[in-house]
Nucleic acid binder design. Structure first.
Lengths: 352, 352
DNA sequence: CTGAAAGCGCTTACAG
DNA sequence: CTGAAAGCGCTTACAG
């Protein structure tokens, strides 16, 4: 047990130098004799020196800037507004410590714009970045450049496992799958069949979606009253035509399908199919309260959406950056948030 | 539009006095000529003076202490741990501003202990209080004393409308009722009847439970596929015997009851009844993931629990106190958090 | 390579 | 009733 708070003044005294010197070694501003440097470092370590951020904030004029990169939230789809709000809330709290967060946006589905924004960020040269690796290839390129520059990055919503990320804040696919399974199990007749749809093209994402499928299936292996078939299919493209073709072949062959689980957020596409084929009484569960999904949730075609606390994701990601960069704390690599269940009624107040 | 930040030094200059004087009027430390006082106040107001909390924290040695009062979380029931964690988290953030939160606990269901703790709090004379008015009469007494001393208090979980509270953070009963209705509507056969149970003795609470009942019923007036009867009953006491008697008379008379909505958190008592009468296939929905409820949720007797973001409640309540006491901000009186839906699967990661 | 000094915006005695 | 000065813990030139 060492004594309470040690100040840089105390370290200076113990080392027999001035505070200026201590400050220099603590901040690697060089120009200090090797010997005194080591001595100071040693004292700081032994006494577990923690800088007083309040004092630092009061005096320091240099700002620390973080960047975020997300799809721009649009009038039609406020989905990306939620993590952004979380980021903004965190930024507000950290303002007092001279940290700023600069938000960058790219047009949804536009790889070129994404690249352009990453370049702008690189130019800004921030002390840390929060982003969602929507386009895997382009994101991987980006992370490599960040690695080279030593800029830490935190993923939200999804992650690139093979990259060198500081942290990921998001949900656990397996857990999400199980929650969905329980929901469908509750509403479906015991002998009804269940269709699991993987609507994916993005290779990276596949892992996450597979996790959800596995969680879903594991539920029925453990428990669950439903005894029906679990039919799993993949639809590699999400064009209306292709979906129709595929579903026609599956659903018309099996009239006993009473529930559908979509492992991703393109639930609305399936909802549309169900409506135009008068199959709306099939239970439909999928992910993410994006605007199109909310529409069909309210319409009653989608029964539940699984949310992933987008606000929390943004908020926590920024906090992690702060803790790592400013406080030198160790950061747990993956933080899995619980998912939340959204029905017609709670969507009204949803924002978490 | 006035210029950016104005410091007390600036005010002093404009008023032609010293910073000491400005500080004195800003803090009501008296002994200032009426005229200069008004002049200073005017300047501060016109320029929208906001104290620099960082500087204040660095220099001020006086601590601001808040108190919380909640039932002590027990090994068997961690329910009250969640708001407590929220309070602690907020306290941690505010530590840098020299605010401390001292937590008081009383034994559950023990009015005497509650009173004893309120006395201890009064003795401490904190700058603000967060508590849950579990016992209405005793709580009302307490609030009157607080009013007299001018100590602001924030309610969580439930509120005493007739008191002079600074703010309430909790959920909206009407909304909760609707969410529950949607859940039951999803799982119940179209022609099944639904029983609504009000298990209450606490007069204050009645309002909240009524709100839930009304929300629940309103759902079925607006929409919902279920066409069955909605039977509402009150059970003024929660002894096993009385519950049994009452339910025997209702449920045995109506074999068509397929769903039960409990407007409060004593769902487990109904679950026990259903189990011992082999009626577990009736859908059961109620409030709050207290330990006994979780048990029957996992068991499958309770299908859903509605949560009220207890962690957030504690967290936000403390923040409000801070904003009011330290920042002089205006505080919206009621903040209704969205409810969350909890099933067997998401309870595992539940803590929000 | 190192130290002495000023300053961040506020609070707190102390002196008058 | 009011002002001048020291101090909170750190950072930042400046001088040597």
């Amino acid at each position: 047990m060492t004594k309470a708070k040690i100040r840089i003044k105390d370290i200076a005294e113990q080392a027999g130098v001035s505070v200026g010197t201590v400050d220099r070694v603590l901040h690697n501003r060089g120009e200090v004799a090797e010997e005194t440097k080591n001595k100071i470092l040693e004292i700081a370590k032994v006494n577990n020196y923690q800088p007083n951020l309040i004092a630092r904030a009061l005096t320091s004029k240099k700002q620390c800037v973080f960047a975020s990169l997300l799809p721009s939230p649009t009038e039609e789809d406020i989905f990306w507004k939620r993590p952004l709000n979380g980021i903004t809330e965190a930024a507000l709290e950290l303002e007092q410590f001279q940290v700023k967060v600069k938000n960058f946006f790219f047009e949804h589905y536009n790889e070129q714009d994404f690249i352009k924004q990453t370049e702008a960020i690189l130019e800004l040269n921030p002390s840390g970045i929060v982003f969602s690796p929507i386009f895997s290839k382009e994101s991987l390129d980006f992370t490599e450049k960040l690695d080279k520059k030593g800029i830490p990055y935190v993923f939200i919503e999804s992650k690139l496992s093979k990259s060198n990320y500081l942290a990921y804040v998001g949900s656990d696919g397996f857990h999400g799958g199980r929650v969905a399974a329980n929901l469908i199990d509750f509403g479906i007749p015991e002998n009804g069949d269940i269709l699991i749809i993987n609507l994916a093209k993005n290779l990276e994402n596949v892992h996450h979606l597979n996790q959800r499928t596995q969680g879903f299936l594991s539920y029925f292996m453990d428990k669950g009253k439903n005894q029906g078939l679990k039919i799993s299919i993949e639809i590699p493209k999400s064009d209306t035509e292709i979906i129709k073709e595929k579903l026609d072949s599956v659903i018309k062959k099996n009239k006993n399908i009473k529930g559908i689980f979509i492992t991703g957020s393109k639930v609305y596409k399936i909802a549309r199919y169900l409506i135009s084929n008068e199959l709306s009484d099939i239970i439909l569960v999928g992910f993410d309260p994006i605007e199109q999904n909310i529409k069909y949730l309210n319409h009653g075609t989608i029964n539940f959406l699984i949310g992933q606390h987008p606000h929390q994701q943004g908020f926590k990601a920024v906090k992690k950056l702060f803790e790592y960069v400013l406080l030198n704390h160790a950061i747990p690599k993956d933080e899995y948030l619980p998912v939340d269940i959204i029905n017609q009624e709670c969507i009204k107040l949803y924002e978490a």
